[in-house]
């Protein structure tokens, strides 16, 4: 069986800065694969190149064996890829339910339907509500997304992505700005989601990454410096020098 995602020799520069410099890794089907590294390592840029928001200068992206390099998002999503954003992007002035229902209708191929009322696309509404219930957001279904607390907005990001029923879900720092308790909740959630889909996770919380990942890839300065199981990564001296040590020092 082909890997859920293979990234080969991916490169992307901003002016003189090589933000991503020959990055490669593979996400096995059904895995939670984490991409970690200090701020500015190029993780979000890798995400953007995979998900069609940036065109990589070099390299290839394979989704279940198919070359999808530089496909636009509206082709990648039907192919089974969905992502969230590090900086929350929800539809602020639409209701929480509508945020998720939009994604469900998109997946159901309704986007170009111009006559039937969106509110009558019952399957999308039902599905959206189910997802909100699963994620504990159902009571806020009719609130405007803008009015959600930060943590709930981060969860709404995930809810929107789940409504696309991805085979590979890419989460860019889902716990950004969250409390320890909320972070733990997200960690459990990711594991639950992983029962149905492969996950590529960018995450800062080291404890969480080591706890829930099947594989970890470590980036610094646009390059991959290590890839392996959480155990192997936490013992890797390169990683300790470049990253974990720095984090530990800060945490002390």
């Amino acid at each position: 069986m082909a890997d859920a995602l293979v990234v080969e020799e991916l490169s992307k520069s901003f002016g003189a800065l090589r933000a991503v410099d020959g990055v490669g890794f593979a996400v096995k089907d059904g895995d939670v694969h984490s991409l970690i590294g200090p701020n500015g390592a190029g993780k979000t840029t890798v995400f953007n190149c995979i998900s069609g928001f940036l065109r990589p200068a070099e390299g290839r992206v394979l989704l279940r064996g198919e070359d999808v390099t530089a496909w636009p998002p509206h082709r990648l999503i039907p192919a089974g890829l969905a992502r969230t954003f590090q900086i929350t992007k929800v539809f602020g002035d639409l209701t929480v339910l509508e945020n998720v229902a939009l994604a469900a209708r998109s997946r159901l191929g309704q986007n170009l339907r111009m006559w039937r009322r969106a509110s009558k696309v019952t399957s999308a509404n039902v599905e959206a509500l189910e997802i909100l219930e699963m994620l504990g957001l159902a009571e806020n279904a009719s609130a405007n997304a803008d009015h959600l607390a930060h943590g709930d907005k981060r969860i709404l990001e995930i809810a929107i992505a789940l409504a696309l029923r991805p085979r590979l879900l890419m989460l860019d720092e889902p716990t950004a700005g969250m409390s320890a308790g909320e972070t733990e909740h997200i960690g459990k959630l990711v594991r639950r989601i992983a029962a149905r889909t492969s996950v590529l996770l960018v995450e800062h919380d080291m404890e969480m990454v080591l706890g829930i990942s099947d594989q970890v890839t470590v980036m610094t300065q646009g390059r991959v410096i290590a890839s392996g199981t959480p155990d192997a990564i936490s013992r890797d001296t390169n990683v300790q020098d470049a990253y974990l040590g720095a984090l530990d020092a800060r945490n002390l």
Binding site: H74, S106, A118
Partner: peptide, 29 residues
């Protein structure tokens, strides 16, 4: 009125609200 209440109409509102997010749910912006 029908158009803006349709699935298509809602995608337009999604685009107005957050273009990148709209793209990220598969709307061909």
């Amino acid at each position: 009125s029908r158009l803006v209440a349709s699935s298509f109409g809602r995608t337009l509102q999604a685009i107005r609200t957050n273009e990148e997010r709209a793209a990220a749910i598969g709307i061909n912006v």
